[in-house]
Design a protein around this nucleic acid. Structure first.
Lengths: 178, 178
DNA sequence: GGAAAGTAGCTTGCGAGTAAGCTAGTTGCT
DNA sequence: AGCAACTAGCTTACTCGCAAGCTACTTTCC
């Protein structure tokens, strides 16, 4: 629970021995010509993303929303008052097609967490606004999500988190370059 | 293409200024009570996972396989000769339901990349075996995927990659603990 | 002012995954 | 031996996202 280094820094080779190590070891055996280092990096990234996604999804369960729906509410929430954005802005921010956005908004509107109203300046457009209930729920859910994320970082010192942050920034830049 | 540091290490605060920074800054404004550090870490993890997944998916296109299908072939490949596993082993390894596995195997079998045969020791079971074509394709595809992953790491020095590796190991442990 | 091009949001059809349930075959207990 | 519990793989119903196409409206440009 506290800041246990979760072992990994005993000998020269930390050899934490996780599933990704097993996979890269297997590759090394059948294809010794390959450099498996990148595979290990991204393999862990994928697994962290998936594991944390699942956990957070489960945490949102009790608010009756899925993760994608939380993302919509959160985007509205952090845009500040009056918690209003257009479907277009939302789908662009969340990297979702307009079709997917329509579906999410339908569900959230049915649940009473937001409302759609016509854009007064452009009759093609809509304005999506967080309802009071939506605001309350997202404010609770974001805390619940952070809680889980915080727990997952307990094995790292503050310095390590900061280091990780910088390295991930580089990695994200490299992964989205071009 | 080479080893451009992609800028980020000029001043004290690297301030690479990426989309995740913008999001956390927004949160800090509307909810200054929240600790947004974990959000930034996992936000970047999600984005890297998604961006790289998309890229690799595209790279596999030219082999006529999707990413999930590659994963099946790769699991068989790295199990070594005779490149045979049961659907159960595959679905367990790939964290896929048996129903999902059936679908993937159907597609791959139809494409001639693997074959299903009865398990001689258990008449309930099957043995899935990589075909010659499947073996050839996965051996090419894995190289193509590594290429892309390697490129994404070009902004990091060898030391940084190693550091990142260790930190990700800790992060994965914390994300899958319990 | 009016046609062409662009933009907003919705609808439809499709692909891929899960969850739940089925059948056939195996293992374990008595 | 015989019945209960388990396991392997498949099927079905459902969800969710994307891609493509639609209508309505706006902007641009002559």
């Amino acid at each position: 629970m506290t800041t246990k280094p979760s072992r990994t820094s005993d000998a020269a080779k930390p050899a934490g021995k996780d599933p990704v190590d097993a996979i890269t070891a297997q590759w090394a055996e059948v294809r010794p010509d390959l450099d498996t280092a990148p595979m290990a990096v991204f393999g862990r990234v994928y697994r962290v993303a998936r594991a944390m996604g699942d956990r957070i999804e489960k945490a949102y369960d009790r608010f009756g929303i899925a993760r994608g729906e939380f993302d919509v509410l959160a985007t509205l929430r952090r845009s500040g008052e009056p918690y209003t954005l257009s479907p277009r802005q939302l789908s662009a921010t969340l990297m979702l097609t307009t079709g997917g956005m329509t579906g999410r908004l339908d569900k959230l509107e049915r649940a009473g967490l937001l409302s759609r109203s016509p854009d007064p300046h452009d009759r093609r457009g809509l304005r999506v606004t967080l309802s009071e209930r939506g605001l309350a729920i997202v404010d609770e859910a974001v805390v619940a999500g952070l809680e889980i994320q915080h727990e997952a970082l307990e094995g790292l010192s503050e310095d390590q988190v900061e280091q990780l942050q910088e390295l991930l920034r580089l990695l994200l830049a490299g992964s989205t370059r071009d």
